[in-house]
Design a protein around this nucleic acid. Structure first.
Length: 154
DNA sequence: GCCAACGTTGGC
DNA sequence: GCCAACGTTGGC
């Protein structure tokens, strides 16, 4: 089982949206490095849900990957801003996953807190200028985040 | 709102 | 294949 981090601007799609909808196809990723990570995801993997472009940016909860290797439907939709004319049903260019809501942290873990806990080498999200919206999380980092968030429940 | 740090595009 | 120009992300 692997851990991941998924960024989303809450104005666009927040953890509350996921909690309400239960599951969602993580569509609209149009960066090759991020897509390659999406292709590696397997059902039962766990993703940290990160809110970007807000004050403060923070990890706000957990989601689980429940279906992998989904062709991102927006690539076939001419009216979508994510439409890709080079994609065909036979040869989709953008694969993604379906995630389900797991939990919302009682206390979120802000970017300043994450910077205090982790080096840029062990956790890329704290690296200055990092723009990647999908990234792996090494087990040591995942465990420390989970421990910290469960401690804050008390 | 600013701007650093990218990723992409396209001319050559 | 190089790289300048441009566009986007996202922290601050």
């Amino acid at each position: 089982m692997n851990y991941w981090l998924l960024k989303s601007e809450p104005n666009d799609y927040s953890i509350n949206d996921l909690e309400r909808e239960k599951t969602v196809i993580w569509d609209g990723v149009r960066n090759y490095q991020a897509r390659n990570f999406l292709r590696e995801m397997q059902p039962s993997d766990v993703a940290f849900f990160y809110h970007s472009n807000v004050k403060p940016p923070a990890i706000v909860g957990l989601a689980r990957i429940i279906e992998s290797q989904i062709a991102d439907p927006t690539q076939f939709a001419p009216k979508s801003k994510y439409y890709d004319p080079k994609a065909t049903a036979d040869q989709p260019r953008w694969q993604t996953v379906r995630v389900e809501f797991l939990e919302k942290f009682k206390e979120t873990l802000s970017l300043p807190q994450l910077k205090a806990m982790f080096s840029p080498e062990e956790f890329a999200v704290v690296k200055k200028g990092n723009r990647l919206s999908v990234m792996p999380v090494i087990p040591e980092v995942a465990q420390r985040i989970l421990q910290t968030s469960s401690m804050m429940l008390k």
